[in-house]
């Protein structure tokens, strides 16, 4: 299992290292430029005159793109491993499917955390250099984020369907369930916040909401594994 996780991380590193480095360099340059152009003490929001607005817009787009990279990588990796040229190596092995999928999941989550911390570090760097108002750099571009989420969910669902269509009759169901589940789970967290039972609003606290959502995600994930490993015999 440890070796499988290491292998998955190695695959991600090999696909990430050059585009990731390029994005980090561009982002670092922009952040540095923003620091140089910013008002002396960052006491006020950046102004058009200071030139930081345009830079921050670019920064927010890049941060959003970097934030979505782990999801893009996870979807692309799934398609490449299970549908693409590496499928014989991935599928041909007698290693149980659940181990392969758990290794991919752990590697994807690890990559996500690394990216979040890397971008987060860059975002707070101006704050360290100047003051804590630099947190405004953590802005994300809502338009880019929404478009990326839509494209990703569609891409993930299509990848899963095409990976499984010649292997199991459950391809369509699994594709919809796994592809749409991130959106569904996110909505579920909000739904729980506004849950109204018998006319009495029941506001779950944030921890409870995410525990319930996490449990639903776990049940969905384990259910998918059972479906794939036993019934669909992927």
């Amino acid at each position: 299992m440890i070796w499988l996780i290491g292998m998955e991380l190695r695959k991600r590193w090999e696909s990430l290292k050059w585009p990731g480095l390029a994005l980090l360099l561009v982002l670092s340059g922009l952040v540095l430029l923003a620091v140089l152009l910013a008002p002396d003490d960052f006491a006020e929001l950046p102004s058009r005159a200071s030139g930081t607005v345009a830079i921050m817009a670019m920064v927010s787009v890049i941060v959003t793109v970097m934030g979505y990279y782990p999801y893009v990588d996870a979807a692309w990796r799934f398609a490449n491993d299970f549908r693409g040229r590496h499928a014989p190596l991935e599928f041909g092995s007698a290693v149980p499917t659940w181990k392969k999928l758990v290794a991919k999941l752990i590697a994807s989550v690890t990559l996500y955390l690394i990216v979040i911390y890397a971008t987060g570090f860059l975002m707070v760097l101006p704050g360290v250099l100047l003051n804590d108002r630099a947190a405004i750099f953590a802005l994300r571009s809502p338009l880019v984020a929404q478009a990326a989420a839509t494209v990703l969910v569609t891409y993930l669902a299509v990848s899963i369907y095409l990976s499984l269509v010649n292997r199991t009759r459950w391809a369509g169901i699994v594709a919809v369930l796994v592809g749409v589940s991130p959106v569904f789970l996110f909505d579920m967290a909000w739904f729980l916040y506004y849950l109204d039972l018998g006319g009495m609003p029941w506001y779950f606290d944030e921890t409870t909401r995410w525990v319930i959502t996490g449990a639903a995600a776990a049940v969905g994930f384990i259910g998918s594994l059972v479906l794939l490993d036993h019934q669909a015999d992927i």
């Binding site: 695959k11 590496h86 007698a94």
Partner: peptide
């Protein structure tokens, strides 16, 4: 599972990394 354990397969296109 039986196939994966007993069959060594070389595809027509390389599957190596």
């Amino acid at each position: 599972g039986r196939l994966h354990e007993n069959v060594a397969y070389l595809p027509d296109a390389p599957s190596l990394y």
